[in-house]
Amino acid sequence: MPTDLSDLQLAAELVREAGLLARRMLAEGLETRHKTSISDVVSAADHAAERLVVGRLRDERPADGLIGEEGTDEPASSGRTWYIDPVDGTYNFLSGLPYWCAAVALADAEGPVLGAVYHPVTDELWLGGRDQPTTCNGVPVPSLTEAPLSQLSVASYLHPATLPDPGSRLPLLAVIGRAATVRMLGSGSIELASVAGGRLGAWVQHDSMAWDWLPGAALVSAAGGSTAVIEQGGHRWHVAGNRTAVADAVDTIRAARADSSSDDLA
């Protein structure tokens, strides 16, 4: 039966329940299946956690659309869609590494409405959105302060398939080269939550999927930060952080593509 929960309260329950279910299933033992590569893995916990979230949303928000990493795709009649990543960082999850989470986002025609990320290993629940400043376990995070990319860490993901492609490799290396340091944790939603919380400085990744991007992007925006999605060099680049750092990263991506185009013509 539907409840009187707000969207944010519902999102909080969804990610906590999904994360705890996945953790419990991991402790009991899981089989791994590979999708597109040796590092692109899925388990029964991914599917079970997605079914849990989808089932609740069908009851609580029947007019909303649903899109999940593990195959859910149901259109909306309300103009709103929930994006579900039941286990973000499955490779870490199955390898015994601590950087994995459950994440959801709600979006409408104007963009992200809210994001929710639950990190079971640390028991941290991140919530934030258009009408709700970002919190971690109910405590508001400080608003992001302005700083250039050169003074910040940048988080990203470098897949081996990135290396042969200059359209992705060159801009990414250019951004990393301008930053103070780089971190790759293997979970986009944890990285973006860490940007919102001031633990990481900025986030840059190309061709991110909506369920990897929207939950954390909502948190960064609600923490006073900035997000950008730009088309460059045959890729869609997703950037988040404080406004100065985002502008630095966007300019760097565009300049790197211009430089590589000039080299190709030489």
Rank of each mutant, 00 (worst) to 15 (best):
residue 55 G to T: 12
residue 55 G to H: 11
residue 56 R to F: 05
residue 56 R to M: 05
residue 57 L to S: 03
residue 58 R to H: 11
residue 59 D to C: 09
residue 59 D to N: 13
residue 61 R to H: 09
residue 61 R to W: 11
residue 62 P to W: 11
residue 62 P to Y: 12
residue 63 A to C: 06
residue 63 A to Q: 15
residue 64 D to T: 00
residue 64 D to N: 08
residue 64 D to S: 00
residue 65 G to V: 08
residue 65 G to P: 11
residue 65 G to W: 06
residue 65 G to C: 08
residue 66 L to Q: 02
residue 67 I to T: 06
residue 67 I to W: 11
residue 67 I to H: 14
residue 68 G to N: 04
residue 68 G to W: 07
residue 68 G to F: 05
residue 69 E to F: 12
residue 74 E to Q: 07
residue 74 E to G: 00
residue 74 E to F: 15
residue 75 P to I: 11
residue 75 P to H: 13
residue 76 A to F: 10
residue 76 A to Q: 10
residue 76 A to Y: 06
residue 77 S to A: 15
residue 77 S to N: 04
residue 78 S to W: 01
residue 79 G to K: 06
residue 79 G to E: 05
residue 79 G to V: 01
residue 84 I to R: 02
residue 84 I to W: 01
residue 84 I to V: 14
residue 85 D to N: 04
residue 86 P to W: 13
residue 86 P to Q: 07
residue 87 V to T: 07
residue 88 D to A: 05
residue 90 T to F: 07
residue 92 N to A: 08
residue 92 N to Y: 12
residue 93 F to Q: 05
residue 94 L to V: 15
residue 94 L to C: 01
residue 94 L to Q: 09
residue 94 L to P: 00
residue 95 S to N: 10
residue 95 S to E: 12
residue 95 S to Q: 12
residue 96 G to D: 06
residue 96 G to T: 03
residue 96 G to K: 04
residue 96 G to S: 04
residue 97 L to S: 06
residue 98 P to M: 09
residue 98 P to D: 14
residue 99 Y to R: 03
residue 99 Y to P: 00
residue 100 W to R: 01
residue 100 W to H: 15
residue 100 W to Q: 02
residue 101 C to T: 14
residue 101 C to Y: 13
residue 102 A to C: 09
residue 103 A to I: 12
residue 103 A to Y: 14
residue 103 A to D: 08
residue 103 A to M: 13
residue 103 A to P: 11
residue 103 A to F: 14
residue 104 V to Q: 02
residue 106 L to I: 13
residue 106 L to E: 14
residue 106 L to R: 02
